[in-house]
Design a protein around this nucleic acid. Structure first.
Lengths: 213, 213
DNA sequence: ACCTGAACACCGTTCAAGT
DNA sequence: ACCTGAACACCGTTCAAGT
């Protein structure tokens, strides 16, 4: 009789971890070379494998990009959770923390952020790949849970949570994109200014742009 | 003596209109093949010219993409202006029209919309190319003028206009991106639902997500 | 000035062949 | 099963050469 131990070696590239290695390589290429720096051949080289090997794990480049986007999405969610936990306070304070984590991630990893929402992943009609969809829903639930708590505590309007969540997500997502695009002058490189701008925008999200009347 | 007439022929590709032809070709490729469908060689072929000819007008692909983004930005601004003019009404009604024009353009031309804000154009530190920056400012002023009018008429909060404009732009831009990314379920293909969702989000932008208290 | 054709390096993808 | 090496089509870019 032989006892089968599940193989978990350190140099496990040849045992099923090539997929993970390729995704990590993709994230590294995004961080170093921007969106255009991500290539199948480059990822294969970084993983120490021939350029044809990735096709054992991904049908085409789009599937690798999708896997990288999924991992990036989970990193974004982590960043939000960390910021929320570090800030604490009442639910509005934690919502602001989530917003700042979101913006901070976008600025720190613009190419990864763009890949997550890059649309190279799902075309006009195709549904998003399941893993990426799941990662998106996980991020969305972090936001939605805060919204629901805010409503229960009467710190947010007694509206349908999904409506408030969509408005909040849109605002923070748009702000992040405009900042990394350089459309908000003097903010991309200045962390203090960035936080100030984010606070202003989130405050307007909370109270609206119409007069209090 | 010879009278020099300014040359404006119909088949003016050889007389300085090659640049324009290449930009138009780029827009066509974006509409038909998505962001990845845009190539220098393809644009040259569509313009009926050798693959090296574009380098007389653009230093590299990035400059062509930048020119295409600029033209796309002007199309987006036109779309907003048209929607504003068609709707009319008070300033809040026209703000809503601008938002719907923005979202409608993004959904109708997602690849062009992504290229405008694609970031392939300006890197981390580089400033945006002047033409694209100007096109962006033109779009921004359409929004800002509405905001200023709203403040003057006491339909918007007496805040710094740029703050209100940034909040509004962020919200509508983010909503557009989330919709074309497929993150807002059941909206990408449904114009009526899309308008309803946009109205809800803009209404929350106006009145905020906090209770009226 | 403006354009061409050949050339180079790089990429995504396929496939017969190796272990 | 998993990986390799050669091969193909495509791309961005350069450059000597043509008019």
């Amino acid at each position: 009789m032989t006892i089968r131990v599940p193989r978990k070696k350190a140099d496990a590239y040849q045992h099923g971890d090539l997929r993970r290695a390729l995704v990590q390589a993709g994230l590294k290429m995004l961080a170093e070379g921007g969106v255009d720096g991500l290539s199948l051949r480059g990822a294969a080289e970084l993983a120490g494998v021939s350029h044809a090997a990735p096709y054992r794990h991904f049908r085409d480049k789009e599937q690798l990009v999708s896997a990288v986007a999924e991992e990036g999405f989970r990193m974004l969610t982590s960043r939000m959770r960390d910021e929320i936990a570090a800030r604490g306070g009442d639910v509005l304070s934690r919502l602001r923390a989530a917003a700042e984590g979101y913006v901070a991630f976008a600025v720190a990893q613009p190419a990864t952020f763009r890949t997550i929402f890059g649309g190279a992943v799902c075309g006009e009609d195709q549904p998003p790949p399941p893993g990426l969809k799941e990662a998106g829903e996980e991020a969305y639930h972090v936001l939605r849970d805060l919204i629901v708590e805010g409503i229960e505590r009467s710190r947010l309007r007694a509206e349908e949570p999904d409506r408030l969540a969509l408005a909040a997500w849109s605002m923070v997502h748009g702000l992040s994109m405009l900042i990394i695009e350089g459309q908000v002058p003097g903010v991309r490189g200045n962390a203090a200014q960035r936080r100030a701008v984010t606070d202003v925008v989130v405050h307007l999200l909370e109270t609206g742009i119409r007069p209090l009347s």
